[in-house]
Computed example of a mutant assay.
Amino acid sequence: MPHPNQLISLLHLASPALPIGGFSYSQGLEAAIDSGFVTDAETAEVWIRDNLLHVQAHAEAPLWILLHRCWQSSDHAGVAAWNEWFHVSRETAELRLETEQMGWSLARLIAQMGWGDEGLRAALLAQSPVCLPTAFTAACVALGVDAREGLTAYCFSWLENQVAAALKTVPLGQVAGQRILYRLYPALQEAVAEAARRADSDPPMLSTFSPMLGVLSARHETQYSRLFRS
């Protein structure tokens, strides 16, 4: 049985009003625009879809499911291991700082809100650093959100933030951004399904191979003019 407040909790966690600073990051999109790979609504949609299906779905999303399972079973050693794995998989300083800052902000919010039991909150705050997927999965377990629905909300939040970054930087109009969001519904569902398949394999199939994103993220660190922190 789904938790009776699952939908409300999902809306809360996926809201851009959640005070963890997601609006300040573009995850390489700003560098892709500066380098000429993204120039309009069509190329922005291609960039976001490719990252959703071939970056998020291959590593961060299946890892999210594994972390959710660890929190559900109170496997705090497993949480620590996957949290460390994700942190060392970040290829650039900006990507590491992004997950550290957002993860710390969400972990602090969980503590302040009193979500979950004392053991969960203590285990979360014991992570140093705490990565965003680790904190988000902890919040989902604390609020009674199941893995599939929680991951969908997590990926939609990422997707919405990418579109918001494109609106500011390409730039795009509001309607163009909404069209991109709507057209990427099937890709979002596909990414969640692929993540589940990878998490369920033995051993889990996680791949961080994304050389273009790594190069662009590294370039962004010294980009002359920028709006975003990544």
Rank of each mutant, 00 (worst) to 15 (best):
159 L>H: 12
81 A>L: 10
141 V>K: 03
87 H>E: 09
140 C>Y: 07
90 R>V: 04
53 L>W: 00
126 A>N: 00
98 E>S: 15
61 A>T: 07
137 T>E: 00
58 H>F: 07
122 A>S: 11
152 T>V: 05
157 S>D: 15
157 S>Y: 14
126 A>E: 04
129 P>A: 00
133 P>R: 01
97 L>V: 08
98 E>N: 15
131 C>T: 09
60 E>W: 02
118 E>Q: 05
132 L>I: 09
130 V>W: 03
91 E>C: 13
78 G>N: 05
78 G>W: 00
143 L>N: 04
148 R>Y: 14
114 G>T: 04
63 L>N: 12
147 A>Y: 08
123 A>F: 03
113 M>N: 12
104 W>Y: 10
81 A>H: 10
125 L>V: 05
76 H>A: 02
164 A>G: 14
75 D>F: 05
71 W>T: 08
155 C>K: 07
137 T>K: 00
163 V>W: 06
155 C>Q: 12
98 E>T: 13
72 Q>I: 07
71 W>Y: 09
124 L>F: 02
129 P>Y: 00
145 V>A: 00
59 A>E: 11
133 P>S: 00
85 W>L: 08
146 D>Q: 13
153 A>C: 02
136 F>E: 12
54 H>Q: 05
112 Q>F: 07
103 G>A: 08
144 G>H: 02
129 P>N: 01
142 A>C: 13
102 M>H: 13
150 G>T: 09
160 E>D: 11
53 L>H: 01
132 L>H: 02
120 L>V: 05
61 A>F: 04
73 S>C: 14
163 V>K: 02
145 V>Y: 00
161 N>S: 15
100 E>Y: 15
120 L>W: 09
90 R>Q: 13
132 L>F: 08
83 N>A: 10
130 V>I: 03
105 S>M: 10
103 G>H: 07
149 E>N: 07
100 E>T: 13
135 A>R: 00
153 A>W: 01
62 P>C: 09
76 H>I: 01
162 Q>V: 05
117 D>L: 09
88 V>G: 09
162 Q>R: 09
77 A>L: 07
145 V>P: 00
73 S>M: 13
142 A>G: 15
96 R>M: 10
143 L>M: 06
146 D>L: 12
147 A>K: 04
98 E>L: 15
157 S>R: 15
89 S>E: 08
86 F>K: 12
59 A>R: 12
81 A>N: 05
126 A>Y: 00
154 Y>N: 07
165 A>V: 02
96 R>K: 15
83 N>H: 07
78 G>R: 03
146 D>V: 14
152 T>S: 06
90 R>P: 14
69 R>W: 03
111 A>H: 03
